[in-house]
């Protein structure tokens, strides 16, 4: 029974690497987050945003604007339930569903920088 519970818990865990680069300033910011190191409420919120974005689903991105001057570039890698996916997006291609997740990660990266 204990082993089954642990397996379920492990399946709930996720690991995120996020980097935002480019922009007018050219100053990049990044953060690495592991659900085991987050407060329970924080982990739940982040998981909700990942599910909302449809990160692991087949999404097509509009990459016509890949060289749009001064836009931000986003590199997001998420490992969850044995799956790993990396997406490279930019302001011209970010679907609206991704915005809440990206905003959350940007705020977390800023707060993390402040702590260090």
């Amino acid at each position: 029974m204990a082993a089954i519970l642990k397996e379920q818990m492990d399946q709930e865990q996720f690991h995120i690497y996020f980097e935002r680069s480019g922009g007018f300033t050219g100053i990049s910011t990044s953060i690495e987050m592991d659900s085991r190191e987050l407060a329970p409420g924080e982990a739940e919120e982040l998981k909700r945003l990942i599910v909302h974005s449809g990160f692991f689903e087949a999404i097509t991105f509009d990459n016509r604007f890949v060289h749009m001057p001064d836009q931000f570039y986003y590199n997001i890698t998420i490992e969850h339930m044995g799956k790993k996916r990396t997406l490279e997006l930019n302001d011209g291609s970010v679907p609206d569903l991704f915005r809440p997740l990206i905003n959350y990660l940007v705020r977390a990266a800023r707060a993390s920088k402040k702590k260090h």
């Binding site: 011209g92 905003n103 705020r107």
Partner: peptide, 22 residues
């Protein structure tokens, strides 16, 4: 947007954020 610390040209117009006002 909110907390958009950037400005860019999208090929047709200029776009400005309000910084990290969030």
């Amino acid at each position: 947007m909110e907390g958009y610390d950037n400005a860019f040209w999208n090929g047709e117009q200029m776009v400005y954020g309000d910084g990290d006002e969030d």
